[in-house]
Amino acid sequence: MTPKILLSEKKVNIMLNRLCCQLIERHGDFKNTVLVGLQPRGVNLLDQLIILLKNSGIQNLHTGKLDTTFFRDDFRRNERTLNAKPTEMEVSVESKDVVLIDDVLYTGRSIRSALTAIDSYGRPNSIELLVLVDRRFSRHLPIQPDYLGAQIDALQGDKVKVVWSNSPSENIVYLEKNNE
């Protein structure tokens, strides 16, 4: 079955621009802000936001890429070995306002592991969450986004996939139905 388009390129582009405006509204010149993309796909969203923020005249952004594999709560819960991705946190988050960035918010467990992992780099002043897509009614933990692209409804087992390009205007969100 071909994947269904949930959000077109045009819609995603509008959302990315809106998320940028909301970030600027809240964080001003970003002097005390660290934007942290969660590996693997939150990093793609971070990269696109950086392009748009720079286009809006925001320079000297503090950014990082965080992998939460070693903080996940499903280690040894199945046959799979959890393989990590690179973490690049060149900046301290001590007393900073951190924005965690991920593409899809589903159960909330990745975000919980990120909340623990980020502590390894200092004690932030505050932590917010930005996601492109929020899968409603699927949360396992009391975690909600502060900045949100769109809310969608998908059945458990379905996959919501964001296909990222190099340009903020060419990204699509698909729904892959579980046919089992």
Binding site: D67, T69, F70, F71, F75, R76, N83, A84, K85, P86, T87, M89, S92, T116, A117, D119, S120, Y121, G122
Partner: peptide
């Protein structure tokens, strides 16, 4: 190669301000 790839990530971990991860807590 899998051990080396994983060790690269752990080398980053042991150079963090807090050098501990909770994976093997049980």
């Amino acid at each position: 190669h899998l051990i080396f790839e994983t060790a690269i990530h752990f080398k980053e971990v042991i150079n963090r301000p807090i050098k501990k991860v909770p994976s093997l807590r049980d």
